[in-house]
Design a protein around this nucleic acid. Structure first.
Lengths: 298, 298
DNA sequence: GACGAGATGCAGAATTACTATGCCTAGTAA
DNA sequence: TTACTAGGCATAGTAATTCTGCATCTCGTC
């Protein structure tokens, strides 16, 4: 019968967050990435939690972890709690800076799609500060401090999101180069530029265009699509163009599409709005304006 | 336009907890008590949070803090989030130890009310471990790791709670002493025992019994009511008895109540059950059994 | 004018969290 | 078999956070 208040301390919050992340993502490594720490740190946190609780939460095996019954029974509740915490945090942030709109986007979209629209946006929304963060993967808008996300994603009817059209691809090149090719088969042996993270674009397009050589020749690879576009404009070779990303140079004539054949990737340009962005806030207005100028044209 | 993922770190969880606590309790000092740290620590955490958010959350004045508009606008959401987190934590704990029932009670209730019932309880619930923690104030059952709380409280219809009757007080003493007094006025000049945290018991009783001297004479003061009861049994003087706490010695004859006059304090013996204690768990069964043997009698 | 209550600031100390490393195991590929 | 890879574990050292223990400040109240 313990007397008086060494009130038992609550479970460590950071350990709970690690548990929630690991349970949601299904592994310590993924959780570590989300939390921006090393996997070892996550493993440690979870061990601390298990020691505090007095029971294992994950079964460990050599190729990953899986939730124990206890872990599985409580994971959803923790996720809900941290979601709520994320929402509250987000409201706190936007309440503190009501005129700041934080956009995150794929680097290529940030540069080639968003960039050209920013000046107009700023002009039409004086007083609103727009910050843009490039990221490789879409954020969990309930958790991360962004108001708007702009990514190529499957058009799964997520939360508030504008679908700005499928990701359509087709070869593009500088006008001078276009004179040398007339049908897709002419590409054989020519320089094909590609983006590191979209390495399979050429294959995918080729698969839908029968008379083109299947084997994609090795060519310059760029880690930034915008760089590949510049190179293509400079005449360095043929690039697999994404409709949303090359509409500007196509319109200006800096690039041309030598063939009619295009392929559709099973994903769409999605503009998602954080659920905390209420009507009439800067974020909602920015999202709406972007979606209006959003289609393929500009 | 920031490039790539130094993903902005989320707000520090501990600082958020400090903010939530301070906002709910209305001050840094109270929050510090709840979190078992010094007020300085809370002040620091909140400052960290304000710096991270970029806006003040509290207005400071010499006699306390008050929420800013921003703080007030978000406090409720944080409370809800941490409540949810507490519920999840509680489920995790009880899932890990399904047969442990954690009771917290006023020290006097733990010793004089719960103590005598524990043996019976243990006999009727084999396999269930009952732990008892004495505390001065009722816990926030959504947050703190207890299944059952036993305190004198206003009978505000809180969550699942059994009302075990008003807190009724009247003087008691050893049988030998009782022979010397016949009416309340006879108490004048005699030794009146009292409990440190219930110092006003005598005044309160006197106020409802006209013919008793108003000025409560100084007498031995005990910090543990159970100690005062022992002393009274030993014949050290008159003690203001609480019906729920002296029913055992009254029944056994170790103490007697020399007068008929009793007073009611505006509070009840409340047995609260954590909302996470589902039907048929150990906690629910313990609570039910206690409530059945709960009335004034035993 | 001297409390008392509540908040603050800072330096040092204690605690907590993270990284870096090497090791282990179970699949998979050669 | 023999790498090789992926994911997790353990440990030690280090970095970062957080807490305490003051002295101090500002208002009300007595």
């Amino acid at each position: 019968m313990a007397l008086n208040p060494p009130r038992p301390p609550s479970l460590p919050l950071n350990a709970l967050r690690a548990f929630e992340s690991a349970s949601r993502l299904g592994g310590f490594k993924a959780a570590a990435e989300e939390l921006c720490v090393t996997p070892g740190a996550v493993a440690q946190q979870i061990k601390v939690l298990e020691a505090a609780v007095g029971a294992p939460l994950f079964w460990r095996s050599a190729q990953g972890v899986s939730l124990t019954a206890l872990g599985a029974a409580t994971a959803a509740e923790f996720s809900a709690a941290f979601d709520l915490l994320g929402v509250a945090t987000s409201r706190l942030r936007s309440g503190a800076a009501p005129n700041v709109v934080r956009i995150t986007a794929l680097p290529s979209l940030a540069q080639l799609w968003l960039g050209p629209r920013l000046a107009d946006l700023r002009a039409r929304l004086p007083g609103v500060t727009i910050s843009v963060t490039a990221a490789e993967r879409p954020p969990h808008l309930l958790r991360e401090p962004f108001d708007i996300a702009l990514f190529f994603e499957p058009a799964a009817g997520a939360s508030a999101a504008y679908n700005l059209g499928e990701d359509e691809i087709f070869p593009v090149c500088a006008p001078a180069l276009a004179k040398r090719v007339h049908v897709p088969a002419d590409l054989a042996g020519l320089v094909l530029l590609s983006d590191a993270s979209w390495a399979s674009d050429w294959d995918h397009w080729a698969a839908t265009v029968p008379e083109v050589p299947q084997a994609r020749p090795a060519g310059p690879v760029f880690s930034l699509y915008a760089l590949a576009v510049s190179e293509a404009v400079a005449g360095a070779g043929f690039l697999m163009g994404h409709r949303h990303l090359v509409s500007d140079p196509l319109k200006s004539g800096a690039l041309v599409a030598p063939f009619d054949d295009s392929a559709m990737l099973d994903r769409h340009l999605m503009l998602s709005v954080a659920p905390t962005a209420e009507q009439a806030t800067g974020a909602a207005r920015v999202a709406e304006m972007l979606s209006l100028t959003g289609g393929y044209g500009c």
